[in-house]
């Protein structure tokens, strides 16, 4: 049984690495809500297995191992036809996404600022898009256009955001 200190440590680590775990799972399962579903399973499994985590070691790497297994189970459940990414590529992505090369958390502040620079309508569209349970086809239905057309518009806004984030980070000397 873990002591209270151990529990507090878990809370701290889990909340700190939550965005990166989300990113890791999205890298393995980019389509729609797969990653969100598995992330919930992962959170429970991490807690169950936290006794096996060695303090002061790389929590993210440890959590990625757990997450990888959960992701593979999820793929099994989906069946072969629903798997978007080939098995061999998935293994490569798993290794590369679990490395410290990319950390989306580094960019969160910059992204929040860049979101504010969008027009109100584009910002509102992006926010709606990333609300849980909201699909592009829902939004397209609401707007009266095709999901493909809306996806392209969203893509344009995202690229604008990526450019903005890159410029912001560059100006702050963070890249």
């Amino acid at each position: 049984m873990a002591g209270d200190d151990r529990i507090a440590e878990f809370v701290e680590l889990y909340s700190r690495y939550y965005p990166r775990l989300q990113y890791y799972l999205m890298a393995l399962m980019p389509s729609a809500n797969d990653a969100a579903d598995v992330l919930q399973e992962v959170s429970l499994t991490l807690w169950k297995k936290f006794d096996t985590y060695e303090p002061n070691t790389n929590f993210y790497a440890w959590a990625c191992k757990v997450a990888r297994l959960q992701a593979l189970k999820h793929r099994e459940r989906l069946g072969k036809s629903a798997r978007l990414i080939d098995d061999a590529i998935l293994e490569c992505l798993s290794d590369e996404a679990s490395s410290d090369e990319l950390d989306p958390a580094v960019s969160l502040d910059a992204l929040a600022r860049c979101l504010e620079r969008l027009s109100e309508r584009h910002r509102s569209l992006i926010r709606k898009r990333y609300q849980p349970g909201v699909s592009v086809s829902d939004l397209a239905f609401e707007a009266g256009c095709s999901a493909n057309a809306l996806s392209k518009l969203l893509g344009k806004i995202r690229r604008r955001l990526m450019d903005c984030v890159e410029r912001t980070l560059a100006s702050e000397g963070r890249r």
């Binding site: 890298a27 980019p30 989306p104 960019s107 969160l108 979101l115 992006i126 926010r127 990333y130 995202r158």
Partner: peptide, 12 residues
């Protein structure tokens, strides 16, 4: 993917 994930955290 990192952009989508960050948007989930920030915008969503």
């Amino acid at each position: 993917i990192a952009m989508h994930s960050a948007l989930k955290s920030t915008a969503g």
